Simulated scan of single mutants.
Amino acid sequence: MSRTLVSPNDKATAGFTLIETLVALAIVAVSIVAIGTLMGSTARGSKQLEQHVALVQAAYNALWLAFPTRLPPDSTTQSGESIAHSWRAEAEPFAIDLGAPTGEVHWVPQKVTLRVRSSSGATIDLETVRLFRRRAE
């Protein structure tokens, strides 16, 4: 069995010094703070995305609730509530030259402006064009 003798000079350099340990702890602490910040911003971003998706879904529902058929609307302004979001829709004639005599045109484009507001105050404004059947004259 051989034993290795350790000289007194080797014992002084063995292990970490107090400063090296503090530097390593500081690096670990900075890394943990950076990871925590990243996770917090990711959570906020996913909540904002979830709210936006809820607004878009409520807008989609409101559009079909406001104008459920392709018949011309009885009133150009509709309002209501869908999925805990209040909405208001307005339809107005869409200025376009159809290039055909009025009697031959069966569909009339209408510009629809839709505003949806959530209970938290977030809003979404949409503009679209929908085709409605021409009323029998």
Rank of each mutant, 00 (worst) to 15 (best):
G103E: 15
R44G: 01
L5M: 07
G80V: 02
P73L: 06
P73D: 03
A84Y: 03
E90V: 13
I96P: 00
A89L: 04
I32Q: 09
R133E: 14
S31N: 08
S31M: 11
I27M: 15
V56F: 02
H52F: 05
I32F: 15
R130M: 10
A58R: 06
L65A: 06
L65R: 04
Q78P: 12
S75I: 03
L71W: 01
E104W: 03
S79M: 08
E104G: 00
I35V: 15
H106C: 00
Q57I: 03
E137Y: 03
E81C: 03
W107P: 00
Q57W: 08
H106T: 14
A29Q: 02
T69C: 06
S41M: 10
A100C: 06
V108G: 00
D10N: 05
V129D: 03
G40D: 07
G15F: 08
G40P: 01
M1H: 04
V129P: 07
L65Y: 02
F94T: 00
P68G: 11
L25N: 03
W64V: 08
P68Y: 10
L98H: 07
R70Y: 11
E20Q: 12
V129C: 04
V6P: 02
D125K: 08
E137T: 15
L98C: 02
L131M: 15
V129I: 15
G40Q: 13
D125A: 06
S46V: 10
L98F: 06
E81Y: 00
G121R: 05
E50L: 09
L63K: 07
S7R: 11
V105N: 11
R115S: 14
T42I: 07
T123F: 02
D74K: 12
I19N: 09
T77D: 11
A54R: 13
K11A: 09
G99S: 07
S118K: 08
P8G: 07
L98Y: 07
R134L: 08
T13R: 11
Q51R: 09
A29L: 09
K111C: 00
P72R: 08
A122G: 01
T123V: 10
T21G: 07
A54N: 12
T77E: 11
L98K: 10
D74N: 11
T13V: 11
E90T: 14
L25S: 11
R44I: 10
T42F: 06
A66L: 12
L63N: 13
V56P: 01
V108L: 13
A91S: 13
R44L: 14
G40I: 07
Q51D: 13
T113W: 04
S46E: 09
T113V: 13
Y60R: 14
V6Q: 04
V56K: 08
P93K: 05
R133K: 12
S86R: 15
E50K: 10
L71T: 02
L71H: 06
S79N: 14
R88E: 12
I27A: 15
Q51W: 02
S120P: 05
N9A: 13
K47E: 14
S46M: 12
G45R: 07
V129S: 10
I124L: 14
L126S: 09
H52N: 12
A100L: 14
Q78D: 03
Q51L: 02
A14T: 03
G40A: 15
